[in-house]
Write a protein that binds this DNA or RNA. Structure first.
Lengths: 207, 207
DNA sequence: GAAAAGTTGAACTGCCCGGTTCATCTTTTC
DNA sequence: GAAAAGATGAACCGGGCAGTTCAACTTTTC
């Protein structure tokens, strides 16, 4: 992470541009964001912006990549522990729900979906740095728990995907399609405990 | 459904425009579609198009609404039967997977997500005419099956959402984010049977 | 068969936006 | 403190697109 390893960045206000651009992109999407807006938001002239990035596309890609990395590193601290599966899974479910209900999660998802034709690599990059990590961590935990005789799972990849999917029940559609009012703490609790119970009904070891 | 109940439509080529517009919208999205393209695709002059619809937005809304209705009516034929839950649920899962893996399902989803800021009512309309119907049908079936002693479900709404969500495991991310190659019949079968098994592990009646 | 209703194509307006240019100003560097 | 590097802003270009207009043409209607 020394200062000279990036071939693109030169000049003092590189960071400002990335921050401002991310702000505008996540507010207006790729097409919706105008370069003038980004320059204004960044507190930087358009000429300066274009001295950093050859075009809007590249700027967007750089912003998205950086943001994904940031998110990935800062959420990778919590690791599976030896508590009872109910506890561990409830914790994991809570974090997942927190993430995709967050402003950030939702906006990134929206942009990925909307712009996936223009930027096929964007969706992959996001998945790799987000959902894929969570999934890998879950699978690791499954192995440990199975070794301890707490779970019994043959297809661990599928199980991890199912668990993640169960956490989205109801909540996700409501958010994506704008159904129902704001999501209350009770709504979240209902889905989380429901997910854990269903998951354990299938993969938990009786007793 | 008489011919004169629509206040907007007048003129011979109304249908052509709707068809052509849907074609272009689903290919290029809302922003990506140009009105000239739509007119060309519809085999209609721009002037004619604008004589039907005051602007692009209204045209899009009308197209989307119509398409949702069409989809809703033509998929509402299959109803829950008295077969064993495994059979019924497998059938339901297959239909759900078929739908959201279809070109249509994916495109509508993409447009809804991308355009939900511009058209909040669009997402709601789609959900009402699509997922909500499937959910209601599932809940109905749950009632019947429970009366027959085949299932035991307290929160039937949540169960329906969970089932739908389980059907998306793995497949959905792959499609949305463009991960992995094309989805094979084996992939689908794996997810479908997995969904049914997990669901029945939780809500099925032992024996 | 003539009037009315509908359709056409093409040109035109106005706007927004991505990207460029440049003379001038500020900061860094030594 | 002067040269070099970076930043400025405002003007400008070119292109694409939504929406308008209109005189000529086709179809419907009675």
């Amino acid at each position: 992470m020394n200062a000279a390893n990036q071939e693109i960045k030169r000049g003092r206000k590189y960071g400002q541009v990335l921050n401002g651009a991310w702000e505008v992109f996540r507010r207006d999407g790729f097409e919706g964001a105008s370069v003038d807006d980004i320059a204004r938001e960044s507190g930087v002239s358009k000429a300066t912006l274009y001295s950093y990035f050859p075009d809007k596309r590249l700027l967007f890609l750089e912003v998205a990549k950086g943001e994904c990395c940031r998110q990935a590193t800062e959420s990778s601290d919590l690791i599976p522990c030896k508590a009872a599966p109910v506890t561990v899974l409830t914790g994991a479910a809570t974090r997942m729900v927190d993430f995709f209900l967050s402003d950030f999660g939702m906006r990134v998802f929206r942009i990925c979906v909307a712009e996936s034709d223009r930027f096929p690599e964007l969706g992959r990059e996001f998945y790799r740095n987000g959902p894929a990590l969570a999934r890998a961590r879950l699978v690791d935990y499954f192995h440990e728990a199975e070794a301890r005789g707490e779970l019994r799972i043959t297809d661990k990849d599928l199980a991890a995907d199912q668990f993640a999917e169960l956490c989205k029940a109801d909540l996700f559609s409501r958010l994506v399609f704008g159904i129902g009012g704001p999501i209350s703490a009770e709504d979240r609790a209902r889905v989380i405990t429901g997910a854990v119970e269903t998951f354990l009904a299938r993969y938990g070891v009786a007793g």
